Structure formats: C-alpha cells, structure tokens
Amino acid sequence: MPELRTDRLLLRRCRESDLEPWAAMNADPEVREHLGELLTREQSDATVAVMQAEFGDRGCGWWALEARETGAFIGRVGLDEDMPFAGVDIGWRLMRSAWGHGHATEAALACLAFGFETLGLPEVVASMTVNNLRSQAVMRRIGMTRDAADDFEDPSVPEGPLRQCVLYRTPAEMLTA
C-alpha cells in the first residue's frame, strides 16, 4: 500500500492508533447522516480490517488520512471497486473537526492522480446519497460531472432517503486538461 503525500496530508495504511478515532467518527450522528446507522466499536474495527485486506487484494482501497502538521488521524479516503455499478468509486469520510478546511478536496485529488497515473484507470466515479450536498460540492471541485441519467437506487440500502444516489464521473484526461 503506497503512501501518498500532499502539502497538508498523508494518506497511509491504518494504524492501531487510528481505531479509536475511527470508531468515534463512525459513532457520530452528523458524520453518519448520509451513510446509515451508527457503528459500534466492533463494527468499526471490522471495517478497518476489510479496508486493509482490499488494498492488498485489488491494488486500491482506503487510506487513513492524517494531518501532516499534527499527525492526527482525520478520516479516510480512497478508491473502491465494491459498488453496485461498474467502475472504481472515489470516496472520503472525515471527522467533523476536519470539515470545511479543504481536506476532502485535497485528498480526493491525490486519489484521482493515483488512480489515473499509477493504476491506469480510464475513469473514476463517485456516488453519494442525493441529499449529501457537501460531498457533491467536493465532487464538483475535483472536476467531476453529474449526468442525472446515471443516478440510481442502491440495492444494498433499505427503502428510505439513503437509497437514492447520484453518480459523478471524471475521465483520466481530467488531469491533463
């Protein structure tokens, strides 16, 4: 699992010390508003194990996101193939204290560069619940576009407001444009 660095962030493998803040983030109702139910500590720890295994199996997955200045864990960002549509999906989840500082945009741009330059992906997609306007704003800031014809209902989500999702896309040429 390669580490990625930006001016302010380190994208790295999860560490044991990340488990507690990751669990706190997954138990935060505001962070989980567009993701579904809150996770217990055990459920949260299990997601870290899955994230680590996926990177080894597929060459892409989820990095822990660290603020370089403080060394603090502030969330996760990555590329995921296990979605209800074709393609590689980019995503992020940050602690509330990290919201509004441009971290999601900065980390997502590093992920896009990795996906296009290292993995040779022709395109990256991003999906989010229709009501998650903050994440959709990040998608637009990193150059992604939405075609409403691509929107979908996530079959893995029970009926309700989290089932309707939007899909954004960006081709590899975006980095050279």
Rank of each mutant, 00 (worst) to 15 (best):
P2D: 07
R5N: 11
T6K: 05
D7G: 15
D7K: 15
R8D: 07
R8I: 07
R8K: 09
L9Q: 03
L10P: 05
L10R: 14
R12C: 13
R13L: 12
R15G: 09
R15D: 10
E16H: 14
D18P: 01
A24G: 06
M25Q: 06
N26G: 02
P29G: 07
E30K: 14
E30S: 13
R32V: 00
R32D: 01
H34G: 03
G36W: 05
L38Y: 05
L38C: 05
L38I: 04
R41K: 14
R41Q: 13
R41L: 15
S44I: 01
A46W: 04
A46V: 06
T47C: 07
V48E: 03
V48H: 03
V48M: 08
Q52K: 09
A53T: 09
A53W: 06
E54Q: 14
E54M: 12
G56S: 13
D57A: 15
D57Q: 14
G61W: 05
G61Q: 06
G61E: 06
W62E: 08
W62Q: 11
W62C: 10
W63G: 08
W63A: 09
L65W: 02
A67P: 00
R68E: 13
R68I: 11
T70C: 12
T70F: 10
T70M: 11
G71Y: 06
G75M: 04
R76W: 12
L79I: 10
E81F: 09
E81P: 10
D82N: 13
D82I: 07
M83I: 13
P84N: 08
F85P: 02
A86V: 11
G87K: 03
V88Y: 03
V88I: 12
L94M: 14
L94E: 06
R96Q: 11
S97Y: 01
A98V: 03
W99F: 05
G100K: 10
G100S: 10
G102E: 02
A104S: 01
E106D: 07
E106P: 04
E106R: 04
A108Y: 05
L109M: 12
A110I: 08
C111K: 03
C111Q: 04
L112N: 02
A113F: 05
A113M: 08
A113S: 12
F114S: 03
E117F: 07
E117D: 14
E117N: 13
T118C: 14
T118F: 10
L119D: 12
L121P: 08
E123K: 13
V124E: 03
V124F: 02
V125R: 14
V125F: 10
A126E: 02
S127H: 11
M128E: 02
T129S: 14
V130F: 10
N132C: 01
N132I: 00
L133S: 10
Q136F: 01
V138G: 06
V138A: 08
M139A: 15
R140P: 00
M144K: 06
T145I: 11
R146L: 07
D147P: 02
A148G: 00
D150C: 04
D151R: 07
F152D: 00
F152S: 03
F152K: 00
E153T: 04
P155T: 01
S156P: 03
V157I: 15
V157H: 12
P158E: 12
E159K: 12
G160T: 04
P161S: 02
P161N: 01
P161F: 01
R163F: 02
R163A: 06
R163S: 04
C165N: 11
C165P: 00
L167Y: 00
Y168L: 09
R169M: 06
P171W: 04
A172L: 11
M174K: 15
T176S: 15
